[in-house]
Design a protein around this nucleic acid. Structure first.
Lengths: 232, 232
DNA sequence: TCCGCTGTCATTGGATCCAATGCAGCATAG
DNA sequence: CTATGCTGCATTGGATCCAATGACAGCGGA
């Protein structure tokens, strides 16, 4: 139904095994999201192919896919690299999230199962238990994307994932710079959001979610050092 | 700076000639947008390759690109086809437009030149002169995308184009079913929008644009016959 | 007559080879 | 010593060949 519970951005694929290009695209996404490949870094087709024991052909297809997702830039005969984003770009992407994600949540809400709610509760408890920064980033992402997992509109789901992916690196940089402080605010917002979702109150859920993203954006914009030397 | 004035969705490419895959992707976009390839129809790699006098390889890359844009669906070993959208899907896409395009306009506004304004005026005059339906569709698209052409955020620009592309076929179907009626409403809205843009009044421009898209969406939702037999 | 099986064919996926381009390093002239 | 042009190499783009899969028609049995 949606891409949200899958390798992050890949189409639902009925086939027993995904085509190599899809697996490679998934790997590249993960590598960029995790910071293994950092902004500014170049991606050589041969390296990726070698890593997968495949030829360069499916790698090229994978690169075209994630290029269309905005995860890499590429130019003819000059190769592909992970783009650096400016502070303003990330700020606008957060504004896009602020406008799109409440809509995704509203579309998702009627389709969320009781089991989804239990899983959300479990994730939130693990967030509150409070492990390391890497763990928090992953759990927070999992939490929000799960709330959108019922959204039946592919265009909307995939754009939301795309926006998360584009800013993931800067979320991590932010966390590492500022430390885990203010997490209680996030937890309080998650709790309010969770409550609204459990009541299937779309209006309330949208309002809390919008505020949540908005506050994150403002907090981020107060730390321009996250983007130092990354002007495109 | 942005993709809006280019073949609709392709990255800015410094190279003297675009790679074949980009040209083919551009052609496929155009073919789908113009209705030459209709929703439900399948796309065979060999056909496209033959048409370009190229091999299937760049065609496959092009298909991956426009797949990531949501213009086609594809499954391993089963091929690619233009998806049919339900009325609800198109409705939600219009809601996404309603939320994203005012943001794109606000980001674009400070960067629009006096020459852009003159071109907008000229386009609007041609719209009011009122040619055929096909002409109107193209001009209306050109008008709006030109108002966003100053937007320096690639993610935002490309998503806006993508949303236009996804619904283009249904806009045409709608026009053909209902005729050109109510065009004076559109013209009035365009004039108000143009005025706000000329005054560089972002708040006013956003409000008029949002209302414009909203009214179009509601009008469209009143004609479910546009989507008859197109349930996915 | 209808259902299931099987084999053939159309179509897509992948690998290898070759061509084209861009970049870096070096040599040379001023 | 510096700047400029040339040459070689690393890397990407493209074509052709082969393998794998899925759809469909034809056949046989219940």
């Amino acid at each position: 139904m949606t891409t949200l519970t899958r390798p992050a951005g890949s189409k639902a694929n009925g086939g027993p095994e995904n085509a190599a290009s899809r697996r490679i695209a998934g790997y590249l996404r993960e590598a960029i999201l995790s910071g293994e490949i950092a902004p500014g870094e170049r991606i050589r087709q041969e390296d990726v192919a070698e890593r997968f024991g495949a030829s360069r052909l499916p790698v090229r297809e994978a690169l075209r896919m994630i290029e269309a997702e905005g995860l890499i830039d590429s130019q003819t005969h000059k190769g592909a690299w992970v783009p650096r984003l400016s502070g303003h770009e990330v700020d606008v992407i957060y504004q896009m999230r602020e406008r799109l994600e409440p809509l995704a949540l509203a579309e998702s809400l009627p389709h969320l199962t009781e089991d989804d709610l239990r899983r959300l509760e479990a994730i939130q408890e693990r967030i509150e238990a409070g492990d390391g920064i890497g763990e928090f980033l992953a759990l927070d992402r999992e939490f929000h994307l799960l709330t959108y997992s019922g959204c039946p509109i592919d265009q909307l789901s995939s754009m939301v994932v795309r926006l998360w992916n584009s800013t993931q690196h800067y979320r991590r940089a932010f966390m590492h710079l500022t430390g885990p402080g203010r997490r209680w605010v996030i937890n309080a917002e998650h709790r309010l959001l969770l409550d609204a979702i459990a009541r299937r109150d779309a209006v309330d859920a949208e309002r809390h979610l919008g505020g949540h993203i908005r506050r994150t954006r403002i907090e981020l914009s107060a730390h321009p050092e996250v983007f130092e030397g990354t002007a495109r």
